[in-house]
Amino acid sequence: MTFIIPLGVLGLLGLAMGIGLGLASKKFAVQTDPRLAAVIDLLPGANCGACGFPGCSGYARALISGNTKSGLCPASGEETTRKIAEILGIAADVSQKKVAVIKCGGDISSKRHKGAYEGAKTCLSSSLVGGGHIMCDYGCLGFGDCVSACPFGAIENKSGKPPEINTEKCTGCGICVKTCPKNLIELIPSNKYYYVACSSKDKAKIVKQVCDSGCIGCGICARKCPNQALSIENNLSKMDYEKCLNAGECLKACPKKCIKTRK
């Protein structure tokens, strides 16, 4: 008998609660578009925000409500974008995929430090103190703010040198571009391989004092380029990727070896 009462009381309570919850969930059910789950599933799920929406579910909701176009996510490949477009019955807006490159190739080991830096070990903090602890005013500070910021883990710290971007993992989301306090990172088309690994606007004399591989604005690369894709602006070589033919003459010609390739 002493077993019947607990069994009965708890059992009935459980039954009542279960039924109650079932009824409540039906009454207060929120109608969701079944396509929403499918779209969210297809999106990479990194919530990087490159699309301009709050996370992947934000972009998915915007797509479902018909307020936006399909190709905004740089992290999903062409195939994914087409699949999403198919589910929603809209046009697949496939744009050229981009990858990030760090436009600095200098030696940033202690040899090139202005002095002993005792602050917080982030690029942002260092950049606030007189432009940074590296001799070159435009150079990479090496604390890896971009490394931490990359939601895909595509950037790797290298000691004594600027970080290295893994092109396979890079989705071109652009978060590193916004993170770098020295604005060293640029998104270039994924089918182009050559870039100027320097951002120094200093005159040649100063560049030579602070870096062995800095751009001195000599212009040889511009002259050697078969399609005039390079031009010198503010003592710095600048690449126009619409004209670049991936010839690689610039890399061979540069006397300071500051043009690099992603390959």
């Binding site: 009381v9 009935l12 039954l15």
Partner: peptide, 23 residues
């Protein structure tokens, strides 16, 4: 709804029995 009710019924019943036994 019935499934939910049954599930909780079973869980709570098992709970009730174990408590009764321990007691």
């Amino acid at each position: 709804i019935a499934k939910l009710g049954m599930y909780l019924l079973i869980v709570c019943s098992v709970s009730g029995i174990s408590l009764a036994v321990t007691n």
